[in-house]
Structures are given as structure tokens and as C-alpha cells.
Design a protein around this nucleic acid. Structure first.
Lengths: 337, 337
DNA sequence: ATAATAGCTGTAAACGCTTACATAAAAGAA
DNA sequence: TTCTTTTATGTAAGCGTTTACAGCTATTAT
């Protein structure tokens, strides 16, 4: 059995209150007493029981991070940045990977709320549904702690959003291809999440603004896992085989774009002359393929930094902006003319 | 303030013990009572405080997962599989990303032990040092809970290891290149961890066994982040520029191999004719590059499955093997002859 | 020398739950 | 009917901390 504060107090010849004070850095402990206690603590390598602290303490300086899939390149990076930022600000984080299923996500939110976290960070827009009934869990959570959304927007008390203007980014990406003379642009997406919807709207709006309103045959939803490039390539090959002609591809995530590059190579198409490709998220994959992939950088590092700053502000009682929006940037590489 | 079990008991007209019994699925509650209580619980959306439960309960069916960097493709996937497996077995997981620094890793281990986890899973061999003093933290942890190592081996009571035979895999990978007539093989690695050391030994042994004992100039350590392909390419270019000639590259991780492919393309080298490349981990990157990357699959899914099975066994008091070793497999693709 | 004050330390209640034990109610046996 | 057993529920102690409050000592002021 692990040592308790009683054991330490006995060995140090002081009361448990004094030990607790030493542990919590109270300044009303005599230096010599503090030293004496510290020595015992170190000697026996005592660690206070976090659950007991959780009972006594008001805040454990812990925030819950939920993300659907930690093996997704983009989400993983987001989580990584968040943890770094939080740690740097003296907060611990509890990470749960919920999967994409709605019910699972909800039960995980309950689970992590029960751990007395000071806040909840929902990473990725999968957590905000376009069906508002499904957002009940967010509203509920926001009654207990501030809820931070990364890459999604939801207007509700005690919910703070940090996101990139995906609509504008996708509008710009699409426009850039059209201006380069390409008007048959395949749009590939893999999610109907908040940002997924925004991106699609951006594409549609750009097409319309150039009088290319007949984009319906170009829009395709891929519902497999995005870590299987081959399946994505097959998916695109299928679209081509069914007769759709296209000279540009815009994808809502880099892996889909990589699939397009593979498709081009399989079919002897030159990039970007015969097929221009634009990805999204500017992940490390952009540097793995050949030619290197043009992609939209959506400022993940800025986003996570801002999110944590907002969180710290909220937790310390300051009035903070409920929505912080950044602008993405199209990083041109070799897959576009 | 969140509701407590007292609030619920009052509203349901029963004692807190009954509410607790309902919550914990005890079978000594009358069906009608159970229903009455459940209704109140659902109506008010009550969630028991995890810290209070942690005090009363013996086990929270929670295991701590530590990994150095959740944004590393391989580690992220490992974590993902582990969480799935654990969840499927009725266990929750707490994930902490510790970074690669020794002191940080140790403080995180202490942190997560204080959360009363039933076990500790250390993902990746970074946690086992070749300097045994640095492993004190593992020995210490193993006194409190079973410690599970993924991809590392450490012989100590209450420590269970699940790993791949990286030595043999690397021996085989290296041999396959030598048999194909390539004897100037660059070896790139990015870690001196347990498995990093094993891999390197495998390479060296293979070279020696073919009388190529003068491998020293070929062995290079890269100490940057592996998500920056360009830096890796520069690194390899630097090696070439300093006069080392090579017709093969074997890397301890796929990103390093991708860097080699990039290097070849920059220099107009044909793959695999002028340069053969083998990666490690068989990640999604193998499908992103062109030509597609030959890589060693180290059976991550099998490993994680076995690890969790062993863990479940240990926690239920069974006698389990302290070391489970799998064999990796060289997946031949287009970067090798 | 005595009173007032400041600086430390200890005592005990509270946190929200689980569970051993006690007890009441219901059912079965005589 | 009465006694015994079973079933369902309640009571209260305990889990390991934090912290308000009380109390003791050593100063300082008078």
C-alpha cells in the first residue's frame, strides 16, 4: 500500500496539516520545518493521492482533451500542441480518444467531466453537429465548465471557439485553380463536420462566383479511413471510370490529395499540367509525395496557442472573446500551376 | 455546483447506499427501486464524482498510457490501438504525452501513478534506457502496479514486455539488400532507445556476416524532429556531400527513408537502381511517396492486442508470460530491387 | 513585567463516494 | 399463527487530502 500523508507526518514528527502545507507550497511554514518534511518526502518518494486531493482541492488544474482519433495526423498534432501549451501554463491534461461515433463521444464527455476537470477542449469539428439536438451534450457540459472548441464554432454561453476561416481558405484555393484556367475541379471531402461543411461551402461559392454552378458531379464524399492511401486512390479511379473528367482536385484533407496524386501517376497524368491538386492542413504528407503538395495551412499552432490563452483567461475570471478566427494560407508547391 | 449522491438519494426517496448500489450495478436492489433511482439519475443527468469514487473504490478500471509524442505517426497509432483494446475490455485510459526528456518522463510517471491507475503502459522504447540507473523509475512503478512495455524489454518483477524482434528484422532487411548486390548501405537512425539499439545491432550483424565489417562511415544519427522531411533530406545530402558513397539506405523509421527518397530525386538518382531504400514501421507514409517504400512491418496491431490481453490476465490474477516477442516482416515495395 | 501581536503548528470538519454491518420487511416453514 | 430465513434497504465508518480555526510560542510594545 502506498504511503499516506499520515505516514509522512509521523515520520517527520509534524502534523498532517504541516505536511500538506509543505506539499502545497504554503508560505506559513518555518524553513527548517519545511526542510525536515521535504527530506522525509523525498526519502520515501511520497506522492499524494490524486483522488484524495481531488476531493479536498477546488481545482486540480487539469483540463480534459477530447479528440476523435489520435492517430489522425492533424488531430494528433493539435493534441500535441495543446498539451505543450497547457503544460507550459501549469495545467495537466487528460486525453481521451472518443472515436467518431456520436454516442461514444457523448459518454466520453460525461466520463471526463466526472474527473473534475477545469475545462473541456473538444479537438476537431466532429464534436459540433449540424443537427442541433446532437449538441445537447455541449450545452450540458458548458453548464459545468468552460468548453473550448478547436476548429468549430458554436454560439452558446461558456463555449469558446478558436478556428480558422475554412470557408475563405477553400474559396481562395478553389479560385486560384479557376484563375489558372481549370474549371473542372473535383472536390473530395471526408467529413460533414462543422469545418467540413464550411470548406464545401467555400468551394461551391467560388465555383458559383465564376459561373460554374454545375459543380454537383464533382463533389464526392469519401467515408473510409484516411490512412489508407490505396483505398483513396481506388475511390478516385472509380470516379474517373464512371466518366467524370477533371483537371483539378481539391481535398478537405491531405491524404485525399495524396490519393489524387497517386491516381494521376497510375494513369500517366502529369502534375500539374494534366491534373492540379490542392490538399488541406499542410501536414507532413505534403513533403512526402512527389511533386510536393500544395496545401492550405490552417495555422494549427496559432490556433492552439490562442485557445489555451483564452482558456487561461477564462479560468482566471477574465472576460475573453468567445470566438477567435484566424485566416488560413494557401501554401503553393509543385502540384499546382 | 454539481449534484452529489445525496441530492439524488433525496430526490429518489432512498438512501445514498441504494443510489450507490444502483450506480454500481449491485444485484441486491429491487427492480422497482432501481428504476425509480435510474429515472432521477437520468432526469438530472447525474454523474458521480470520479475522485470521490477513487477514494472509496479499490479499482477504477483505468490504466495510464504514457507516450513520448502523440504526434509521431507510429506512437499515435500504437496509442490508438491500445485505447481501442482497453475500451473493448472495459478499461478506461489516461494518456499523457511526456516528451523525450528523461526528467519530464519521470515526473509524468509519478503523476499518473498518483491517479490510482491499475497499470502503466509505456509506449515506445524510449522509456527504457541503456543506462540502468535511469530505469529506477520503472522499478519503482512496478512496485505499485504492473508495468507494461510496448516495444521494449526490461527484466524485472511485475514488468511485462511485448515487442517485436527488431534485431532480426533489421538483420533480414540489411541482408536482403546485400544479397541484391548492394554493399554500401547507409544506416540512418534517430533514437538510442532500446529498440533503436537493437535495430542498429541487427544492421551491424548483417554487415559483418557478409564480411562488410567497415560499416562505421555508413552509420548516421539524426537528432531532429522526424516530421520535417526537408531537414532529413538536407541531412542526407550533407552526408553525401562530405564524400560518403552509398547505393542503399536503411532507416530506423519511415520518415528518414522518405528523406532518402527525396534526396535521390533531388540528385537525379533512380530508385531502386541507383539507390535502394528500406524504411521501418510500415506506416502510411510508405504509400505516400513514389515509388512506394519498402518497409518493415513490426506488427503493431498484434503487439497492442497481445499487450492488453496480458494486462487483463495479470490484473485478474493469472500467471502471464513476462515477455511476448513477435517477428517483423519486410514488406517489399518499389524502393528495393 | 505585562499585554498585545505576529508567526507557526495542530485539530477537526469537510469533500462525495463505497461497503461492512445492522435492521426492517417480506416470505417460507412449522 | 409464530418462528426462521431471505431479501432489500439504511446507517455509519472509512478512503487521503485541504483548510478554517484554535492554540501555543516567541517577539515586540508599553
Amino acid at each position: 500500500m502506498a504511503l499516506t500523508i499520515y505516514d509522512i507526518s509521523k515520520k517527520a514528527g509534524v502534523s498532517i496539516a504541516t505536511v500538506s502545507r509543505v506539499l502545497n507550497g504554503s508560505d506559513s511554514v518555518k524553513a527548517s520545518t519545511r526542510e525536515k518534511v521535504m527530506k522525509v518526502i523525498e526519502k520515501y518518494d511520497y506522492t499524494p493521492n490524486a483522488y484524495a486531493r481531488g476531493m479536498g482541492l477546488h481545482s486540480l488544474r487539469t483540463v480534459g482533451i477530447l479528440c476523435a482519433d489520435s492517430s489522425d495526423l492533424y488531430l494528433a498534432k493539435a493534441v500535441y500542441y495543446l498539451e505543450q501549451e497547457l503544460h507550459a501554463n501549469g495545467y495537466e491534461s487528460l486525453l481521451c480518444c472518443t472515436g467518431y461515433d456520436l454516442a461514444d463521444r457523448q459518454s466520453y464527455i460525461r466520463l471526463i467531466l466526472s474527473k473534475k476537470v477545469d475545462s473541456l477542449i473538444l479537438v476537431g469539428s466532429h464534436y459540433v453537429s449540424s443537427v442541433d439536438e446532437e449538441n445537447e451534450i455541449i450545452r450540458e457540459a458548458s453548464k459545468q465548465v468552460p468548453v473550448m472548441l478547436l476548429n468549430a464554432s458554436y454560439s452558446y454561453p461558456n463555449v469558446y471557439c478558436t478556428l480558422c476561416n475554412d470557408y475563405a481558405s477553400m474559396f481562395e484555393a478553389t479560385s486560384s485553380l479557376i484563375r489558372a484556367g481549370i474549371d473542372d475541379i473535383l472536390y473530395l471531402y471526408d467529413s460533414n463536420s462543422y469545418s467540413g461543411t464550411k470548406k464545401l461551402s467555400g468551394y461551391k461559392a467560388a465555383m458559383k462566383s465564376y459561373k460554374l454552378a454545375d459543380y454537383a458531379p464533382y463533389v464526392h464524399y469519401y467515408d473510409g479511413r484516411t490512412d489508407q492511401i490505396e483505398a483513396i486512390t481506388d475511390f478516385i479511379q472509380g470516379i474517373a471510370d464512371r466518366g467524370t473528367r477533371f483537371h483539378g482536385v481539391i481535398a478537405s484533407d491531405d491524404p485525399l490529395a495524396i490519393g489524387a496524386i497517386k491516381y494521376a501517376q497510375q494513369n500517366g497524368l502529369r502534375i500539374p499540367e494534366d491534373l492540379a491538386v490542392i490538399g488541406y492542413n499542410n501536414s507532413m504528407l505534403t513533403a512526402c509525395c512527389m511533386p510536393e503538395l500544395t496545401s492550405v495551412d490552417n495555422r494549427l499552432e496559432n490556433l492552439t496557442h490562442q485557445l489555451v490563452q483564452t482558456l487561461i483567461g477564462v479560468l482566471s475570471g477574465q472576460e475573453m472573446p468567445t470566438e477567435s478566427v484566424f485566416s488560413g494560407k494557401l501554401i503553393k508547391r509543385a502540384t499546382t500551376p
